[in-house]
Design a protein around this nucleic acid. Structure first.
Length: 105
DNA sequence: GCCATGGCTAGTA
DNA sequence: GCCATGGCTAGTA
């Protein structure tokens, strides 16, 4: 099924992830009913029109890795640290405890 | 075609 | 490390 994943839905769901928590590309995809669309979520993040209102820096890789960021992964890491997260190398510390619970509409 | 992913196998040590 | 998957864009005709 192609073209059924709307960026606006992704952004809306992502806005529910609070400061100090993160989610993953795959989790967003699954919560929206597109379990195989993790990579598409990454593309949608890259097209984020407004990083102030849509916290795309809170979307990380499924293994707790940093993932990508339009303004550089170092910037992303710095922001997450400012929000209270810690890292062990390039992985988020206590990743499972930092995962937001996504609620589908 | 390219990619801000992710899950699964082969096959080395 | 390979490749299926989904959305996007460059750039040919």
């Amino acid at each position: 099924m192609r073209g059924a994943l709307f960026a606006s839905d992704v952004y809306a769901l992502l806005r529910t992830v609070p400061k100090g928590k993160v989610t993953t590309y795959g989790d967003l995809a699954k919560a929206l009913g597109h379990p195989r669309a993790a990579r598409a979520i990454g593309r949608i993040m890259n097209a984020n029109p407004d990083p102030i209102v849509v916290p795309c820096h809170r979307v990380v890789a499924s293994d707790g890795g940093i993932g990508g960021y339009a303004y550089g992964t170092k910037v992303k890491k710095d922001i997450l640290e400012n929000e209270g997260l810690s890292f062990e190398g390039d992985r988020i510390k206590d990743f499972e405890k930092r995962r937001a619970v996504l609620k589908k509409n």
